[in-house]
Design a protein around this nucleic acid. Structure first.
Length: 674
RNA sequence: GCUGGUGUAGCAUAAUUGGCUAAUGCACCCGAUUUGUAAUCGGACGAUUGGGGGUUCAAGUCCCUCCUCCAGCACCA
């Protein structure tokens, strides 16, 4: 009889072949097969029922517990199958698409795409979930079977599942694996591995129903996608649900309304932002910071119109390439007899090019950097609009750099540094950097020579590497006119939004025939770099609101200080203090209502005002103020001068947190990032 | 745009199977109160129940239609 040598951890044992993983694990630890859900054999995941055949090799076996990340993925994948089984049971004739586990997306744990005989509605979800629970309780085996490709296709063809047949045709080798859940109508074309039986699935929840195109292509039919999530234990699921509810409280749309920062009004149009004074105060500070930096970094501030002749957008190629994002052309009133058509701008680039082209350029002038807070308008589909994040009219902190090929790497690097300064200043610690390059068959549909692309990518890669920035290289994500670096930040519930971008452009310099005279007296074509740091001021603000949950650092807070007299005997003093702080340049309000101090404090706390100045008879008598910080609470009395000095420092340094000596003890407190 | 859902004072919620004057809290306003670190009391005001159409003796509630918003898909120069 032949033997198999197996290692689990450091221990090695021999077994007569063939032997199942479960049996092997059992011999090492009686409870191990029960605790595990799958196992790794030499690093490859397999079911516990997997049979080991004779081999000379020493096999290393690692049990995968539900508590591990690998285990969670299996649980979610198996739960997706369980859901499909429930749907098939409740709605015979349902066609299945794909149903993966989701590990990266904090919103969901898995989905399955289906086409049921009738359209499912939200009311069906609890019914499906109930069925799943009933099935889970029955400890139904997940059974793997290896079949010839043709047999598998025949099986799904008999089951009237053409979508599965299509997948098998595309993905399967000569043989393929099928997974059954016994005693249910379910069978799937799937690599696995899966839990040994449905009883391992203890904590799951169906979340939402939505549309999804077959294979992610809008040309294909739309299926229904059921999202759910699953965890190893109920407590983890409960915690996740709770955390999600918390996250929803910092939704910028909700806080925008509660804190009176901005609004979007149907009567004026979807996707158009009204910045209220409090949002406007923050925007002003954001812009002021930016302008200071632009000045320091050698950008020229320019201002250009929001519309231009239609012809311009034909020259630029926007009509050709982005027709779907452009608002329709407009004209002068007919009675004026002018036939010229105009378009609202979707981008600022052609205008900055206009300034570049306003006179001949010399190499001595380069690099030329034009910056503008340029408002643009795009015809975004209604279904894409989302608060401040995706709108139809927005302002880019746009800039265009015209430079020589030799200068390009430095310029790109400076842009990356600038972006990092912005992110640091606003307190973002977590963001994702992507390098988007060409991709697809023969790199079709991209403008510019292979050499251009290689040089540009090099410049971007070098800029990132020199700064030891970790990034993901994504093929096929580049703009058709050049490669780019994008920086994305998560919102409160984990959706990623692109903010900064640094893009090469091989298109516009050609189309607009940009030139400069070189040292050699010859005409040369400059390289053009587009770059935005906030990306869109609106979107950046949206992410910022969620990042701080509305509790902005002092320098950004729309109301920085609120003065709270305890009785109306103190109102005059309160007004004097308010006036003085206003004169010193702070955004201050006084609450002179005849409420109790507790109520006034509550009001200020709910409005997330960084500092409250509480004034009573004592303060009036001693000519001091009592200061309360929104997070630290009462920090004691000080002179108004002392407070002003501290506030001034917070403002000037654009601090997002700070420490201060209180009563002889140095305590760290303050405006911390929530 | 597509799939599903949703819409009641500024905000958050309520309103038996279709049934009386659409209710409550907060906010706003008025009055009383003069208070020491997260809600003082009382009063008044505020709604063509998203728009339009229909069914019915009767519609916030049922049906049709348009619109908004939400989740997702696709899109995102």
């Amino acid at each position: 009889m032949s033997e198999i040598n197996v290692k689990v951890g450091e221990n090695q044992r021999s077994f007569p072949a063939p032997v199942s993983i479960a049996e092997v694990l059992k011999s090492f630890d009686r409870d191990l097969p029960k605790k595990s859900i799958v196992a790794k054999v030499n690093g490859a995941e397999v079911d516990l029922s997997y049979t080991l055949d004779e081999t000379d090799e020493v096999l290393s076996i690692e049990p995968i517990l539900p508590e591990s990340l690998d285990g969670l993925q299996v649980i979610r994948h198996s739960t997706a199958h369980l859901m499909a089984a429930a749907v098939l049971d409740l709605f015979p004739g349902t066609q299945l698409g794909v149903g993966p586990a989701l590990m990266e997306d904090p919103r969901y744990g898995f989905y399955y795409d289906v086409i049921a005989p009738r359209h499912l509605t939200e009311a069906d979800l609890p019914v499906i979930e109930k069925k799943m629970r009933a099935m889970a309780k029955q400890n139904l085996p997940y059974r793997r079977e290896v079949l010839a490709k043709a047999d598998l296709i025949k099986m799904f063809s008999d089951r009237r599942e053409p979508l599965k047949c299509e997948l098998i045709n595309e993905k399967a080798d000569a043989t393929a694996t099928a997974y059954y859940i016994d005693n249910t109508p379910f069978v799937d074309f799937c690599l696995g591995p899966h839990v040994p039986h449905s009883g391992k699935l203890k904590a799951f929840k169906l979340l939402t129903l939505s549309g999804a195109y077959w294979k992610g292509d809008a040309e294909n039919q739309q299926m229904q996608r059921i999202y759910g999530t699953a965890f190893a234990a109920q407590e983890e699921l409960d915690a996740w649900v709770k955390q999600r509810e918390e996250a929803e409280k910092r939704d910028h749309r909700r806080l925008g309304k509660e804190l009176d920062l901005f609004s979007i009004q149907d009567e004026y149009g979807q996707g158009f932002i009204f910045w209220h004074p409090k949002g406007g105060a923050i925007r002003t500070d954001m812009e002021n910071y930016l302008r200071e930096e632009l000045q320091k970094r050698g950008y020229g501030m320019v201002f250009t119109p929001h519309i231009a002749k239609r012809q311009l957008w034909q020259t630029s190629g926007h009509e050709e390439n982005y027709a779907d994002s452009l608002f329709e052309p407009m004209k002068m009133p007919a009675k004026f007899g002018e036939e010229t058509e105009f378009r609202l701008r979707p981008m600022n680039c052609p205008f900055h090019i206009g300034i570049y082209k306003s006179h001949p350029r010399s190499y001595r002038e380069l690099p030329i950097r034009y910056a503008e807070l340029g408002t643009v308008y795009r015809a975004e589909l209604s279904g894409t609009l989302h608060g401040l994040m995706r709108v139809r009219g927005f302002t880019q902190d746009d800039a265009h750099i015209f430079c020589t090929p030799e200068q390009v790497e430095t310029e790109a690097g400076d842009c990356v540094d600038f972006a990092y300064d912005v992110f640091n200043t606003f307190g973002f610690e977590k963001f994702k950097v992507e390098l988007s390059v060409r991709g697809g068959a023969d790199n079709k549909g991209y403008l510019g020579s292979d050499e251009d692309w290689a040089n540009a990518e090099n410049a971007l890669v070098n800029a990132l590497n020199k700064r030891a920035i970790a990034y993901e290289r994504i093929e096929g994500e580049a703009a058709f006119y050049g490669p780019k670096i994008d920086i994305k930040v998560e919102d409160s519930i984990g959706r990623l939004w692109q903010l900064s971008t640094v893009q090469f452009d091989f298109n516009l310099p050609e189309r607009f025939e940009l030139e400069f005279t070189g040292e050699d007296g010859q005409k040369h074509r400059p390289i053009m770099v587009h770059r935005a740091l906030f990306g869109s001021v609106e979107r950046f603000f949206g992410v910022l609101i969620e990042h701080y949950a509305g509790a902005f650092p002092f320098w950004l807070a729309p109301v920085q200080v609120t003065v709270l007299p305890i009785t109306d005997r103190i109102n005059d003093y309160a007004e004097a203090v308010t006036k003085e702080l206003k004169q010193a340049g702070f955004r201050v309000e006084a609450n002179l209502k005849s409420d109790k101090i507790g109520a006034k404090i509550r009001d200020a706390q709910l409005n997330k005002v960084p500092f409250m100045i509480v004034l009573g008879d004592k303060e009036l008598e001693e000519n001091v103020i009592a200061v309360r910080e929104r997070k630290a609470g009462d920090i004691g009395q000080m002179s108004l001068e002392e407070f002003k000095k501290m506030a001034q420092q917070l403002k000037e340094t654009r601090a997002i947190g700070f420490s201060r000596e209180v009563g002889g003890v140095v305590g760290v407190w303050g405006l911390e990032v929530v």
